[in-house]
Nucleic acid binder design. Structure first.
Length: 365
DNA sequence: AATATTTGACCTCC
DNA sequence: GGAGGTCAAATATT
């Protein structure tokens, strides 16, 4: 059983590595795809063989059902082998820096939970956790145990207006909070060079920068972003981006909150997640820009195989196409003809203002 | 003109 | 009191 589990976890790890690579490095080298696919197949084939031999073995215990994390009799063996395999997976680098966040004593509860219908972007991040590149760590944010943390400040009446002024003149800000109670996901991504500056790769969503802060002990400032569509949906998704001191070509991105906006964009490569009725027409096809980049400029992250990096980087621009099939066929409920909305979308370019104008009418109701 | 970014001030939490 | 997160006026960009 140990062997089979090891093979399964190895296959999962390889699959995550491949998925992360496909998502973030363009163009993909077909040789690399082939090699990776074969490795995954080999791993699962090995698992299959091990399981077959186990099942056909006369030594198979009567109670062979594993209850992972269970405490009753019959579960201990399964659980221990499971944790051995999981530890193997962890020690391979997938969770190398998450140990403080990922207490192994909680693995049955935390590590095995899978969202029933994961958000596309979230799923992508979760799947990306198996390699040093694109590592993802889940962190339950600081528990609000004091009762005073995260409280909301209420502005005094009649205090609206400019929030900027001389010290001591404020008090008009209605809500200001720290310590988001939502789940945080930490991802490390290689820098992408555009022109003379490096930046994190596009994650498919549209973000608006709302702050930057010098962090004590860090060489590089931390940037704060929130979803562009926050004003229209109350979309609370945020992210913090910081360059690593030890590796300036790697960014650590902390995602906070889930996107609740329908216009949040999704990389084309996730189209396999889209419903079958999704139609990507030329009018809404993603804009593809090609930049000639020296491969050494793309990343120096050793976890990326050089074969994956071409001399040109094709970066998918945020596209609304993926979700169109979803919500164009959805009952928008406000009596607004879908065709009209599509017309607005297709004929007005992809400016967020037109998008927001559409959805603001929904949101306001 | 509309939208995004910059940046100093403000606020919360430790 | 200091660090980190957020706000919003000023400024830049599209």
């Amino acid at each position: 059983m140990d062997e089979a589990l090891n093979h399964i976890f190895e296959g999962c790890k390889l699959a995550r590595n491949l998925e992360t690579s496909i998502r973030q490095v363009f163009p993909i080298n077909p040789d690399y795809l082939l090699k990776s696919s074969e490795e995954i197949i080999t791993a699962f084939n090995s698992a299959s063989k091990s399981l077959n031999s186990l099942i056909n073995s006369p030594d198979l215990p009567v109670n062979s059902n594993m209850v992972i994390g269970g405490s009753g009799e019959g579960s201990s063996h399964g659980a221990s082998t499971f944790f051995q395999a999981l530890n193997l997976l962890q020690s391979s680098g997938g969770f190398e820096q998450s140990r403080t966040l990922f207490d192994t004593t909680q693995l049955p509860r935390v590590g095995l939970e899978m969202p029933a219908v994961p958000d596309v972007a979230t799923a992508g991040m979760e799947l990306g956790g198996g390699s040093g590149y694109g590592n993802v760590f889940h962190e339950a944010t600081n528990a609000d145990v004091s009762g005073t943390r995260g409280r909301v400040r209420v502005a005094p009446e009649g205090s609206s207006g400019s929030g900027r002024g001389p010290a001591g003149s404020s008090g008009q800000r209605s809500t200001r909070r720290r310590r988001d109670n939502g789940q945080r996901m930490i991802q490390r991504v290689p820098a992408v060079r555009t022109g003379n500056s490096e930046m994190p790769p596009d994650d498919g969503y549209t973000w608006r920068k709302y702050g930057q802060k010098d962090i004590l002990g860090c060489r590089f400032p931390r940037s704060y972003f929130r979803c562009t569509h926050k004003n229209y949906y109350g979309c609370e998704a945020k992210k913090q981006v910081q360059r690593l001191d030890e590796d300036p070509y790697t960014y650590e991105i902390v995602y906070c909150g889930q996107h609740s906006c329908l216009t949040s964009t999704t990389p084309l490569l996730i189209s396999s997640f889209a419903p079958t009725n999704t139609v990507v027409t030329s009018a809404v096809a993603p804009i593809i820009t090609t930049t000639t980049i020296n491969s050494s400029n793309v990343t120096t992250n050793p976890h990326i195989e050089s074969s994956m990096i071409g001399t040109a980087l094709v970066q998918m621009q945020p596209s609304t196409s993926i979700h169109l099939g979803n919500w164009l066929t959805r009952d928008l409920g406000e009596g607004r003809p879908v065709a009209d909305m599509a017309d607005v979308l297709f004929n007005s370019g992809s400016s967020s203002s037109s998008m927001d104008a559409i959805f603001s009418s929904q949101h306001e109701n």
